[in-house]
Every structure is written in C-alpha cells, then in structure tokens.
Design a protein around this nucleic acid. Structure first.
Length: 832
DNA sequence: GCGGATCAC
DNA sequence: TATGGTGATCCGC
C-alpha cells in the first residue's frame, strides 16, 4: 500500500513475512516439479475414490442460515448518535479500527486498518471509540430473536451467528398465518416481538415495509424513506400503527422474518445466507450485504453452480497466505480447486487437501457443533516501547494477575504457560513452559512466565529487549477425565496411607516450625498473599525439607514479587465447581463426606494445628476465600498426599530417607532432555548437538545464561548453618517461609507450596543442574534416568499425572484418526 | 510439548 | 506519532 510509510518497522516486517511466504511457495513449486505423472495418476485415483465417498455423504437435508449484522459496531453508533448519520465513521482508535460504516468503506476504510491510515484515505473520517457493553446488549437482543428459530444456534461473535432452522421449518409448515404475522412497530411504541393476533395485513408484495428488506438493495443506502422512521413521524396515525406483515413458510421467508424482527427490535439491519451447510451459508450472507439475503437451494446442481466461479478466498478458512499459495498453482476459483485435487493431495497435508476437496465440492458442516471447552486463555497488550527489564517484569506480572483473574472467573487451571513477545520491529516470539500440575494464581503463573521472560532477556544481554507487545497465555486445561483421575488418585493415596501411617507421622512440632522460619523473610515487605500465608501453618512443608549441601541463594527476580493490591481487591467468593466432594483428611484420615473444599481445608488446617476450629477462626477474615485461594489449597493438599505416599513407601522399605535421597526421590531428570530444553530456550544449537552434550557441560554459568539468574548476594547465611544437619526428609516439618529447590538447590523465597512446585518444574524445564547431582548420583536413579526419554518432574505427583498420559494421548490420537480433517475452529462447523 | 504461522472476528 | 486482542489450529520439529 502506498499509504504505508516506506521503511517503517511495520512495513519492513511485512516485507520480511512476504519473503517467507514466497519462500514457502518456492519450496512448494520445487516439490511440484518433482512429481511424476505416474504419481499424479495414482493420486488422482485415490483422491477420486475419496470424492466418491464425499459425494455419497452429501447431505442437503439441513437448512443452515448465517446471520451477519451489517457494520455492526458502526451501525450501533450511528443509530445512537444521529449526528453521525451520513458521515463516514469507524469504530476503533487511531491505531486500529474494528469496523467502518459503508460510507467510510467507499474511501477504502476497512476493519483491521489503523485509524491514522484510514484518516489519510478519508480525512473527514470520524473515529468513534468502541462501546462494547452496548454492542453486547444489542447482540443479546438479536440473540433472543435467533433463539426462537434455533435454540442451539451458534454465535460466532457479537454480530454473527449460524442457525439450523431445519426443525423450525418443519414445524412452521403447519403454522396458521397469525403465528407468522408481525406488527410493524414504531420506534417508541410498545414491545412487539411476538406474532400478532390480527389486524390489517399488509401484503409483503406491496413492499411497503422496508424496501431494503425485500429488495436487493444497492450497497450503502440508508434510505431516507425507511418506513420505520416514517412511522415514527406518523406514529399517531392508527392506520399505520396497525400495519402488520405475514411471513410465509419457506426458508427465505423465515430469514426475512428474522431480519424484520431484528430491524424492528434494534433498528439495525442484518444480512443473511441460506444454504445446506455452514460453509455455503457464510458465503451467502456476504453476497447481498448489506441488508440482503441470498439462498442456495438445497440441490446439488444449485450448489455446484454457486461454487463454480467462486473465488476460494471467499471461503472461511482460506486466508491471504493460502490464497497466494494456491494462486501460485493457478488456483483461483473452486473449480480450479477441484481440477487440481490430485496435485493438491501431493503437495499439502491430508488435513489441508481434505479441506480443499470439501470446499471444491461445496460441502460443509450440516450441523452446528456445540461450543467445546475452551483450550486456552490469554492476555496481551501493545504499548510504546518498553526496554527496561524491570518494567518488563512488572508488566509481565500485571498480565499474569489479569490472566489469573480471568481464570478465576471460569474456575480454570492450566499446566502450560506461554509468553508472547513482540519487539519494536514487529517480530513475534512465543516461549512456553509446561509444568506437571495445574496452576491458576497470579503468583504461580508469574513464577513460570518470569523465567521464560528472563531467559529471553538473558539471551539478548547486554542488549535490552525492545518490546512493543507482551502477552501471557495459559493452556493445557485438564479435561473432566483428568480431573476425575486426579481426584481418584488422591483418595487412593490417602486411603492407602490410612492403613499404615500413623497420623502423627505428619503432625508437626511447634519447635520445628519455628526453627525453619527465616527471620529475615518475616520482616520483609509482603504482599497480601504472603501475609495471608504467613498466618497459616502448613505441615506439608515437610515434603520439602530438603536442605542440601551446595546451597546458593537464588534470587528469582525479586523486584516485582509484591503483588499489586489489585489482586486482593479482586478476591471474590466464587463457587468452585468441584466444591462439594468426598474428601479424606490427610491428617486424621477421616472421611469428610460431602463438604466444600473450603470446609475441608479448614478441617485439615485445624487438624494440622492440633487446634480447635475456633482458634482457626482468626482466619475468618479471609475465610470468604476466593476460589483462587481455595484452589491453592487444593493443590497443597494434593502435594501433601503425595508426600505421604513417599513416606508410606519409605516405611515399607524401612529406609531412612536423607535429604539427598529426597532430591533423587523427588527429581529424576534426564540430562539429555534437559539439554534439549535448554536448547529450545536458547535456540542456538541443534537438538542433536545438545542431546549429545554431557550434563557436566552445564555448569552454573549455563544456569546463569539460560535460566535463573544466580545471585550470590547470599541472604542465606543463616541457612548455611543448617545445611550440615541432614534432616530426615520425612517426619519432619518446615513451616517457615524458606524452601529449598531440590533441583537447583537454591532457596526459594516462598512459603507457597504450589508456587514452590512451580519453581521446581520451571527449574527442570530449564535444565538447571544441581551440582549435587554430579557428586552424588544415585546409581539406581541414574539408570532410571537414562532409561527415560522424556523429562520428568520433581514430584511423585508427576508419576501420577503421567500415568494417565497414555490414555489421554491415545484418545487424542484416536480422535485424530476418526476425524483426520482439520478441525480448526473456523472449520469446526465446516465438517460434519 | 514447542514455536512459528495462519486464520477469523 | 501511530498497525489490536483473543482463541484456535496446524506443521515440523
């Protein structure tokens, strides 16, 4: 575009991306050149066999409609502000527009265009900031109408939806006229959203309702003669007030009715497409936009006629890049696409060429898939350059807090945290880390995210990262099966422990507790959560009584450890879905029946404290705990149960577990996989190079470079004195704020067990190698390690989690086999 | 599982 | 002066 400033960073990046696409195309063309005619013939046979199957499965029995509000945001703004009428407007900001009205579109102003560019195209352009609440409200009104025709309609966004009106059409055939009659309402008259009883019927053929509604109208005409406005002026005229219209029983009439009702209710127009499947309906809705509709009749010939010259780019799912790649093969229309089907099957993945074949046959989804469970949740923000590491960490933490709040609203927890960075040159990078148990709090997420960020900052050192965007995403949400499995495992452990463990094994001694409280930490400035936790007594810290010999102080980027007060403000009671379950107290081993998690945790707290519930009630100021807190505790108890399992096993083996054993017990790590991890993060060596690296080569220097910045500022002098005493791993308790990571051997400034677990996962993911391992590798474990191909985690819990992995994987691959077709969300509805 | 890319809205 | 945010999926490692 000539409006794009030559040499701008954005433009340069666009050029770079374009080159990459061209390279892809070149690669593709080279592969094409190597295809022999015999290969092609063979492919043709196979593909055509598939075509037969598809053709046989063609289903024309459904009536799918796609409703699309015209220039929705802009239309709402114009409706509510008459001054904007007849002016080119766009909704958005100077940096980005969401939509524009048709007037502005004449100037080339489009959605997804920066406002300042749009202004160059159209200096009179009025840019209106978005009012999403308002759009949501209007959208809700529209959806109420849609639900009358298909209660299972699928909303794609605020202004778009698919409906399957097959059933409605059947029922409608027997409807009396009155049930299909609607009154024409004036703007300020009473609600008229239901079929009327009678009154003068206006023949729709008189087209006196809305010329726009019943005629294919030229684009962008806000007709001054819009009858509803006319009626508004003449609302005292009883004759006009009593006008009504009856809609027929065909699909076309249904859609007219829907659009009529939408316009009556919202004063906004919609366009619609009617077709036997979603792919076609979507394209149809665009055909007579704005304020029009188009139908493909449900017979094969009509479909094929429509498809014939259709540019592939019109199809949802074919974007700029795919269009360009196919164009390189001479494919522009769907007919081209069909003719090249054999070639495409050789050049593209199965997913892709199946998809292409569906398109070229005019096939699509004939049912509306229910909204599946969400797979990820993210926050990201663009800003003017930030290059100070401190500010970057701070920002990262803020994003984590926001994300945590969003997660809490949906009661979700995930195992994978991904950060996204875009530098001032618009180059995007993502870095992910998966931990073995779910996380959800701001602190947990930040613990992972900041390490990912640190790795990137360190990688460019001494140059700062010059960022223009940062994002945090969480994914790998456990499915229902995962959750059940997890719960069963916990109960199983607890019940097993019940038989051979005495409760006192896990009880804590007051003296022990105090002994391990780090005085410095106590006086340090603390966040809301830290303070809150300080009040708690956690016996399960014994899990981590792993004081080791080679200790350093790990400074995990402390400047932004303090959570913003925002966090605490957002604590709201929220019912967690897994609130009422049968829990067995890991301390007294009594089954607690159907109680809430919160109640259960209270019970455990009391048990652990050996104190009465009433004493515990000093926590009551916090006891309307947020689900965040509840979740936290849930994790804690989970870990606790695993600690017990270790204990239990230790009893069976009659072994004394030392701190060193503890490390080995808790963490088996495969050095090659660690190398891979490091490699992945550094992105410098090939996998092969790294996996052949002996673990010895990863000294503390690597650690500094690649992961945790190690600080020897040593706040842990006090701890050093404790190191020598090899405390038994179990049967003892730490209650203070100091935990030592068995992976990096470094003290962690946290009393939050979950957070600590997260740290360990991060440590393992990053390939930190504790020196201890070099000196004292347990041969047995070493063997175990070398026999493992994937990285493992530091917790027994991991084993638990992983056991179910195969099942999950199997299911995953199975579903892939059954449904090999690309199930991209945009294509979800496309395939049956 | 990770990271880059593509796509839709 | 200045080019978004959210979610999903796929491919090749």
């Amino acid at each position: 575009m000539d409006s794009t400033k030559e040499g701008s960073r954005f433009y340069e990046n666009e050029l770079k991306k374009e080159k990459q696409v061209n390279q892809r195309i070149e690669n593709m063309m080279q592969r094409k050149a190597q295809i022999t005619s015999q290969q092609l013939r063979k492919a043709q046979v196979q593909v055509d066999r598939f075509v037969m199957e598809l053709e046989q499965s063609r289903n024309l029995n459904n009536t799918i409609i796609h409703i699309d509000m015209d220039a929705f945001y802009a239309a709402v703004e114009m409706r509510d502000n008459p001054e904007l009428k007849d002016k080119p407007i766009a909704v958005g900001s100077v940096s980005m527009l969401s939509t524009s009205n048709y007037h502005a579109r004449r100037f080339g102003v489009r959605a997804a265009m920066p406002g300042f560019i749009a202004r160059r195209l159209c200096p009179q352009l009025i840019i209106v900031p978005p009012n999403f609440d308002k759009y949501r409200a209007v959208s809700k009104e529209v959806k109420e109408i849609l639900a009358d025709y298909d209660p299972n309609f699928m909303a794609m966004s605020l202004d778009e939806a698919y409906l399957n009106i097959t059933k409605h059409l059947q029922e409608r055939q027997n409807w009396p006229e009155d049930k299909r009659r609607y009154f024409i309402k004036t703007r300020n008259s009473v609600e008229n959203d239901k079929p009327g009883e009678e009154v003068n019927q206006l023949n729709e053929h008189e087209q006196s309702i809305s010329p726009l509604l019943f005629e294919e109208s030229p684009p962008d005409l806000q007709l001054p003669g819009n009858p509803f406005q006319v009626n508004f002026k003449e609302q005292n005229n009883p004759q006009i007030l009593q006008n009504s219209v009856v809609f027929g029983t065909s699909a076309e009439e249904v859609v007219k009715e829907i659009r009529f009702r939408i316009e009556q209710k919202t004063t906004l127009t919609a366009s619609a497409g009617i077709a036997p499947n979603t792919m076609l309906a979507k394209i149809c809705s665009d055909k007579h936009k704005p304020n029009g509709q188009y139908q493909i009749l449900p017979n094969r010939q009509a479909v094929m006629d429509f498809i014939k010259d259709l540019p592939i780019r019109k199809v949802s799912g074919i974007g700029k890049v795919t269009e360009k790649m196919l164009k390189a093969l001479g494919i522009i229309t769907c007919t081209d696409l069909y003719q090249q089907r054999a070639l495409l099957s050789l050049l593209f993945s199965e997913t892709s060429w199946h998809y292409f074949l569906h398109i070229s046959l005019g096939l699509g989804s004939t049912h509306l898939a229910r909204d599946g469970e969400r797979k990820s949740m993210s926050v990201e923000r663009t800003f003017s350059e930030i290059n100070k590491a401190e500010e970057q960490y701070s920002l990262c933490q803020e994003l984590c807090s926001e994300l945590a709040q969003d997660l809490q609203k949906e009661g979700l927890k995930g195992r994978t945290v991904t950060i996204k960075l875009k530098n001032v040159n618009f180059e995007v990078k993502t870095r992910a880390s998966t931990v073995s148990s779910v996380v959800s709090t701001a602190e947990e997420i930040f613990a992972i995210a900041k390490e990912l960020l640190r790795t990137e900052i360190d990688a460019d050192f001494p140059h700062p990262l010059r960022l223009r965007l940062m994002g945090v995403r969480i994914s790998s949400f456990p499915n229902e099966e995962d959750k059940k499995h997890q719960q069963r495992s916990i109960i199983g452990f607890l019940q097993a422990g019940n038989q051979s463990l005495s409760a006192t094994d896990c009880m804590l001694e007051k003296t022990d507790k105090d002994q391990f409280v780090k005085p410095l930490e106590m006086s340090q400035k603390k966040s809301f959560f830290d303070n809150k936790r300080s009040e708690r007594k956690w016996s399960h810290k014994d899990t981590f009584k792993c004081e080791t010999v080679n200790k350093r102080s790990l400074q995990i980027s402390q400047p932004f450890q303090i959570l913003k007060t925002k966090m605490s403000e957002n604590l709201e009671t929220s019912e967690n879905s897994d609130n009422c379950q049968i829990f067995t107290c890991p301390v007294c081993f009594r089954e607690q029946g159907h109680i809430s998690l919160e109640a259960f945790n209270k019970h455990v707290d009391a048990c652990l404290d050996g104190s009465s519930i009433s004493e515990n009630s000093k926590m009551s100021s916090f006891s309307h705990a947020s689900s965040t807190e509840v979740n936290e505790e849930e994790n804690v108890h989970y870990s606790f149960s695993l600690c017990e399992k270790q204990n239990y096993e230790a009893h069976l083996k009659n072994t004394e577990i030392t701190s060193v054993d503890c490390v080995d017990l808790m963490g088996t790590i495969d050095s090659s996989s660690k190398a891979e991890c490091v490699d992945t993060l550094r992105n410098k060596h090939s996998k092969e190079e790294c996996s052949s690296l002996p673990s010895k080569s990863f000294n503390i220097e690597n650690c500094h470079q690649d992961s945790c910045a190690v600080s020897l500022e040593n706040e842990d002098v006090g701890l050093l004195s404790r190191q020598e005493s090899h405390q038994p791993y179990l049967n003892e308790v730490i209650t203070g704020q100091t935990l030592v990571c068995p992976v990096c051997n470094l003290e962690q400034k946290t009393s939050d067990l979950t957070l600590f677990n997260v740290h360990m996962d991060v440590c393992l993911n990053k390939g930190i190698i504790q020196e201890l391992r070099k000196d004292k590798v347990n041969p047995v474990n070493q063997h175990k390690e070398s026999s493992r191909s994937t990285g493992s985690s530091s917790r027994v819990q991991t084993t638990v989690t992983r056991t179910k992995r195969p099942g999950l994987m199997a299911k995953h691959s199975a579903s892939k086999k059954i449904k090999p077709i690309n199930s991209k969300h945009t294509l979800d509805t496309f395939f049956k």
